[in-house]
């Protein structure tokens, strides 16, 4: 396998880990976010500083990055997720910008806007694939069972969920901290892949892309979010040579999908027998309302 292909696969795995995090929060719990790149930044910088300055082994450094993201998400989530509605989405924009500004201006620790160089390149393809497989397995299991039903209940109807005894604010905070962990780990792996990170890599555009991928793949479908990540990552990479048109093509792909399939590529469906029935079976009986 060429180094180029390996690089693309590694990047794909890193992007997929972050997208899974956003998928849990936005797709399954119904909380919109426009600032999840901030958690990637936290993970990335924590990993960079711990490995370069404190010579920590990369594995605990990446995990520490994820944990830092959890802590910040918890502090932001407690006040904003108590309220229903899009308070968190607005707060997340603020969070994204605040983190970026701190990274740019806290020169002594983060080395500012010019970026953090010299990070050991520990994120080889097997490492990235390994992380992806473990995290995808854990999330898949979590979503198939009590927790998955609980998240979806809070998304579908928070009043009905509360009347089944769920503390919906706590459920949303749980979903947020888990999703922040995924993004933090993804950021740490990205640092170890590029060996150099910069605040601008984790800007509003990156956050928007993360949410777009999830909407694009289908809200509430883990496989849809992975398919979405694959398409977006490939489009972004394949058109790198003509990079001045890249955003144009990326935009066009998004528009085409949203026009043809507004519920996202996969809708609510996962790859499996249910999707098969939906595609090739008889139509479900129409609503028989009186």
């Amino acid at each position: 396998m060429s180094a180029y292909t390996e690089g693309i696969i590694t990047l794909l795995m890193i992007n997929a880990i972050a997208a899974m995090g956003v998928c849990l929060l936005t797709g399954f719990t119904g909380v919109f976010t426009l600032g999840h790149a901030a958690y990637m930044a936290l993970g990335g910088y924590a990993t960079a500083i711990l490995t370069v300055k404190y010579h920590l082994h990369w594995l605990p450094a990446v995990v520490a990055g994820g944990i830092l993201a959890i802590v910040v998400a918890y502090v932001i989530g407690i006040p904003t997720l108590k309220l229903m509605g899009d308070y968190y989405a607005i707060a997340s924009i603020g969070l994204g910008e605040a983190i970026r500004l701190i990274l740019e201006n806290w020169q002594s620790v983060t080395r500012g806007a010019r970026g953090y160089p010299g990070i050991p390149t520990f994120t080889t393809m097997p490492v990235a694939v390994g992380f992806f497989l473990v995290l995808a397995f854990l999330l898949f299991c979590l979503l198939h069972g009590s927790y998955g039903r609980m998240f979806k209940a809070c998304r579908d109807d928070h009043i009905a969920a509360a009347l089944l005894g769920y503390d919906t604010a706590r459920v949303r905070v749980l979903s947020l901290v888990l999703s922040a962990f995924y993004c933090g780990v993804s950021g740490g792996l990205l640092a170890g892949f590029l060996s150099f990170i910069q605040p601008v890599m984790f800007d509003m555009l990156k956050s928007t892309e993360l949410t777009a991928v999830v909407v694009f793949g289908g809200l509430g479908s883990l496989s849809g979010c992975l398919l979405g990540t694959t398409i977006i990552t490939l489009v972004t990479e394949l058109f790198r040579p003509i990079s001045q048109y890249r955003m144009l093509i990326y935009g066009a792909v998004l528009v085409i999908i949203m026009v043809l399939r507004p519920e996202g590529i996969m809708g609510q469906y996962e790859f499996g027998p249910k999707l098969f029935r939906k595609l090739f079976g008889r139509k479900a009986p129409a609503q028989e309302r009186r």
């Binding site: 039903r149 609980m150 979806k152 209940a153 998304r155 579908d156 109807d157 009043i159 009905a160 969920a161 009347l163 089944l164 509430g220 609510q268």
Partner: peptide
């Protein structure tokens, strides 16, 4: 106020 995306069984399971 049923959970719209869930099946009949999943509604009760929740």
């Amino acid at each position: 106020r049923l959970f719209a995306s869930a099946t009949v069984l999943e509604n009760v399971m929740t």
